[in-house]
Design a protein around this nucleic acid. Structure first.
Length: 721
DNA sequence: CTGCTTCACCTTTTT
DNA sequence: GGTGAAGCAG
């Protein structure tokens, strides 16, 4: 089938959509060729700009659908974006790609596995499998858990793979190597491998790279502030030095540093892509003035950002509300009473918290009052043990050499194939130089007669399933659940067992539904592996309970941001916080605050039970950053908690802009003899010395003494509050 | 080999 | 308070 063409009448008709945009948005949407960064503050319509830009590119004939490659952060965002573009155009986005970096990478790898040395049906190792492999590697290397825990190793390896760290430690290097070997042996890749291998694929195959560049002539990236170095490299492979790249992002909403995201990608965009255009969307259409003023005041304390102004187009509205609870129970009770009133008034409501564990108190309270709610970020459906067992069977069916899947389910339900049998199989696999499942198929002589028989039965199931492979996936999965005994495990049990059965039912429905969309079994498994929690965060009638992370991109009439306490937001593990970490915590708060359209409530508890035991807690340091005039009860509440005294003494306070600090103020473009050009982030007056924090295009962030550093002022920055 | 009990560790945040 | 590994009896 040929690509959809948008003919002239439709074209003219569709350009009318430009009238929906404000001048800033229109400027971004109608940008021609070359790299473009759209700095889009919270609620400034960035998704609108991205979708309208895609529509504009199509409607003006610059691109055909298959020329568009749009990358979003979640699958859900991708779905919404595609839908909105299609609605604007009244036509399908056939063969255009709209999805996550990972999905794009996986698609490439599925198409050309042999070019990067992968077996055609490689598996995707989930977190638990990663941990298992790492435990084994660490054990083999004789590393004590105090040296390097599997968890630390996983984090470190992930950072190395996504390019935000190097393997400098010898032990870590050895673990890395052992881990990769085991992954390959199991014919699996982990999440980070998808990206690194996609980069490898493109960088080592010039003809393929060229073909892809010729096909995808327009690149669009959402949430650009959360890209990590490998993703940047992938973009580079896809677009080269002067791509038609539209990057949309906001450094104030970067909340994935822990996952390797680097703020410098957005802050240094013009340097990475010389000649790039940078546009700013400065109108916030989401929140009322008090909400936005409060959020802006908080985020202004960050140094690693472009100073900018976001003006509220919304009305005055009610002040931000602050509530101090005795403990987490009172916090939940108060919030639920308040949100019941809001719901009665027909407003959408969310409760946001820093850590998943905080949702429990609210769930209890909501159940008590019969308020419908949805939890995002709790144990994901796809992560439930019974679902994973079933998926492992499916994986093994898809790839008979998937050792990780085999290991998971040979003995589920128990069929007498325990540790001893697995040891023998492993031994045999080593001797024969084949995969573990392959050894199990060859039934080595070392097996006991019972083990042999059990394995025969086990494989018999797969033979039986062959006959159904071509049919409906739902039927296939249902048969699998019955014949394997997975379902029987939970029959006639307690409430928990019934819940498990219900989950398995849901899996059957999901498979059936995927089948209806034309997905094959491998396609279904890939989709499941890439599914994220945020994907399921529908904003319906129910109250949404969500982590701050998972709430990014959503909006609600009323937002309750709870647990604003030292140690919880900012989250610390005992030790003090580095500046970069504190700033990320502040951004998290900012993201949460800017989800609110009409009403924002911030709460904290003086006593919180975390971990079984009760601990006295202090209000978050960020509360001291709220401008009192927009916060109701602030003086009373904070005064009662002697809050100012609690607030840790801040770093040298940001100097008032335009002050007497040698003529430097945030936002100024400057030049340095060694570091080159940059922008002033902050001016610190401490004693007689003035220090200037500058973010250099090439050299990154530096703190300088301008008296010594020969900093030259280039120009006044465009935005000035 | 299984299923039970006990014990340690844990907690960010997620594609 | 929850999970998962380890240890032990049948």
């Amino acid at each position: 089938m040929s690509a959809t063409r948008y003919n002239a009448p439709l074209l003219e008709g569709s350009l009318r959509f430009l009238a929906d945009l404000d001048p800033e948005q229109r400027e971004a949407v109608t940008h021609g060729e070359g790299p473009l960064l759209v700095v889009a503050g919270a609620g400034s319509g960035k998704t609108r700009v991205l979708t309208y830009r895609m529509a504009w590119l199509l409607a003006t004939g610059r691109a055909q659908p298959h020329n568009l490659l749009a990358v979003t952060f979640t699958n859900k965002a991708a779905g919404e974006m595609a839908e909105r573009v299609e609605r604007l155009l009244g036509g399908p986005l056939a063969r255009g790609f709209v999805g996550t970096f990972h999905r794009f990478a996986l698609q490439l790898l599925r198409k050309y596995p042999e070019k990067v040395g992968l077996p055609p049906r490689f598996a995707i190792a989930d977190e638990e499998e990663q941990r298992r492999l790492l435990e084994a590697v660490l054990k083999e290397l004789g590393a004590s858990p105090t040296q390097l825990s599997p968890r630390q190793a996983r984090q470190a390896i992930s950072r190395i793979k996504n390019g935000s760290a190097a393997a400098s430690d010898p032990l870590l290097a050895a673990v890395f190597e052992g881990y990769q070997a085991k992954l390959r042996e199991a014919q699996a890749v982990d999440f980070d491998d998808m990206l690194t291998l996609a980069v490898k694929l493109l960088s080592e195959n010039p003809e393929l790279r060229l073909a892809i560049r010729q096909r995808f002539t327009y690149l669009l990236v959402d949430e650009f502030q959360d890209t990590n170095p490998v993703q940047m490299e992938l973009l580079w492979q896809l677009g080269g030095p002067s791509p038609n790249l539209t990057a949309v992002g906001d450094e104030d909403q970067s909340i994935y540093r822990f996952r390797g995201a680097e703020l410098s990608h957005i802050l240094r965009f013009e340097h990475t892509y010389p000649g790039a255009r940078v546009l700013t969307l400065g109108n916030n259409y989401r929140s009322t003035k008090p909400i936005l003023a409060a959020a802006a005041a908080v985020i202004a304390h960050n140094q690693l950002r472009r100073p900018k102004k976001l003006s509220a187009r919304g009305g005055e509205g009610e002040p931000v509300r602050l509530f101090a609870a005795m403990d987490e129970a009172e916090e939940a009770a108060w919030v639920v009473q308040d949100l019941r009133r809001e719901r009665a008034a027909g407003r959408s409501v969310a409760v946001l918290f820093r850590v998943n564990a905080a949702s429990r108190a609210f769930e209890g309270e909501l159940v008590r009052w019969g308020v419908p709610y949805r939890v995002v970020g709790a144990l994901r459906f796809w992560d439930r043990a019974e679902v994973r067992d079933a998926l492992a069977y499916l994986r093994l069916f898809t790839n008979p050499d998937d050792a990780l899947a085999f290991r998971r389910v040979v003995n589920v339900p128990a069929r007498g194939l325990g540790a001893a049998t697995l040891d023998r199989l492993e031994q045999a696999a080593r001797e024969w130089g084949c995969s573990l499942p392959e050894a199990a198929r060859r039934l080595p002589a070392s097996l006991t007669p019972r083990g042999r028989e059990a394995l025969r039965q086990f494989w018999g199931l797969f033979t039986e399933l062959e006959a159904l492979a071509a049919g409906d996936l739902g039927v296939f999965v249902l048969t699998l659940l019955e014949r394997s005994g997975l379902a029987d495990q939970y029959r006639g049990g307690d409430e928990e067992d019934r819940a498990r059965l219900a989950n398995l039912d849901q899996l059957v429905s999901a498979a059936s539904e995927a089948s209806g969309r034309g997905l094959s079994l491998p396609g279904f498994l890939d989709e499941v592996a890439l599914a994220s929690e945020a994907d399921s965060a529908e904003t319906g009638e129910a109250v949404l309970l969500s982590t701050l992370h998972a709430a990014k991109g959503l909006e609600f009439d009323v937002v309750y941001l709870v647990g604003l306490e030292e140690g919880l937001l900012p989250l610390t593990r005992g030790e003090e916080l580095e500046l970069a970490d504190e700033e990320e915590e502040r951004r998290l708060l900012y993201v949460g605050m800017t989800r609110a359209k009409k009403k924002l409530v911030l709460t904290y508890a003086r006593m919180r039970r975390l971990f079984g035991e009760s601990r006295a807690s202090r209000p978050s340091r960020f509360l001291a950053e709220l401008p009192r005039e927009v916060v109701r009860d602030a003086a009373a509440q904070l005064g009662r908690d002697n809050f100012r005294a609690f607030a840790p003494s801040p770093k040298p306070a940001p100097a008032p802009s335009g002050g007497e600090n040698g003529g430097f103020r945030p936002g100024l473009r400057v030049e340095h003899p060694t570091f080159g050009r940059g922008v002033v982030l902050q001016v610190q007056a401490s004693g007689a010395q003035t220090r200037v924090v500058v973010f250099f295009d090439r050299a990154g962030r530096k703190t300088l003494l301008p008296q010594l550093a020969k900093l030259k002022v280039l120009e006044a920055a465009s935005e000035r509050p």
